[in-house]
């Protein structure tokens, strides 16, 4: 697949803090690419450098192999982490305005507007002011303004923050449609579960540095550890002693086994089923979260820390 966006050894230092440290990555055309990392990892700074909102201290941002030209801004749709719109404008006015600063003529915007408002069930509010909308509606509206000019690259910072589950579904569907159109989608998040369901490629960063990157499936098979979940009746104390089992974690109604690389899961199933009733036996794919914790040396609490510097 062709490469759309490439970062080459970019660095950005604020005061004494290295926000982004020698980061390189390659985003294929038409892919959904997730930048994942805890708060303060440098995701927003990276995105701002891609957008040319701030310039890297060193390194280069390349679009299709060359430096971004002036009209690149028109071909990007950007949804910042914290959402906001001009509250005093009507939906119609603000969609027109934000499309016009992207270079979309008003006539073209008007043609596309109703379709988008229908899709996001906002059509009845077209002449209403933004401040009259609920928060969820404002997010959907902001999504329209991000996408209406049919960008080649969609950049979504902390895509899932503040979205309710219904809107997450809606927006995922819209993004899949955009992907089919050939649009490249770059997003950042610290919510791993959502990223896993959406992206083709990932790049994990922490402390401004890349931890790992690549196609999601490759990353999983390469860096994953085998694990099994079992629902069963009775005391499974003996399981700890089985060959290949490295660690047993007990949860409310199931246990999770961490296996060594050469362990035979079928043998374990057989042994356990002889001794007790199994309700569920599942070979787990490693989660991104686990991979990250293993690879990055990050503490799980880093992902829940709020209010980290947002630069």
């Amino acid at each position: 697949m062709d490469e759309y966006l490439r970062l080459e050894n970019i660095c950005k230092t604020y005061e004494s803090k290295k926000a982004v440290d020698n980061l390189s990555l390659s985003v294929p055309q038409g892919s959904i690419y997730g930048i994942i990392g805890p708060n303060g990892a440098g995701k927003t700074t990276t995105i701002r450098m891609v957008m040319n909102i701030i310039a890297p201290d060193s390194g280069e941002v390349l679009i299709k192999g060359s430096k971004a030209k002036d009209d690149f801004r028109n071909r990007v749709g950007y949804l910042p982490e914290e959402r906001g719109l001009y509250k005093q404008m009507t939906l119609k006015e603000i969609i027109r305005f934000l499309a016009e600063v992207k270079g979309l003529p008003v006539k073209k915007t008007d043609e596309l507007m109703d379709g988008w408002l229908e899709k996001m069930s906002l059509i009845d509010y077209k002449e209403k002011k933004v401040e009259e909308l609920s928060k969820g509606m404002q997010q959907k509206l902001q999504f329209i303004t991000t996408l209406i000019h049919q960008p080649d690259l969609i950049i979504l910072d902390e895509l899932f923050s503040g979205l309710d589950p219904l809107n997450i579904e809606l927006i995922k569907n819209v993004l899949m449609e955009e992907k089919r159109r050939g649009t490249t989608i770059l997003f950042s998040t610290h919510v791993m579960e959502q990223a896993e369901k959406l992206c083709d490629y990932i790049c994990m960063i922490n402390g401004g540095q890349k931890v790992l990157d690549g196609r999601l499936s490759d990353v999983k098979s390469k860096f994953g550890t085998n694990s099994i979940q079992i629902n069963m009746d009775g005391d499974g104390g003996f399981i700890q002693e089985l060959p290949g089992v490295e660690k047993v974690s007990e949860f409310n109604n199931y246990i999770e086994l961490k296996l060594s690389a050469e362990a035979d899961s079928q043998a374990i199933l057989k042994t356990v089923s002889e001794k007790m009733t199994i309700h569920r036996f599942e070979i787990m794919e490693p989660s991104l979260y686990d991979i990250f914790i293993n690879m990055g040396g990050v503490k799980p609490s880093d992902f829940n820390k709020e209010g980290a510097a947002n630069v």
Binding site: M51, I53, R73, N74, V76, Y78, L79, P80, E81, E82, R83, G84, L85, Y86, K87, L98, V101, K102, Q142, T145, T146, I155
Partner: peptide, 15 residues
Amino acid sequence: EEKNSRIIEVMISSV
């Protein structure tokens, strides 16, 4: 106000 509502980020992604 634009800073507080963060729309300024959308604006400077366009201009």
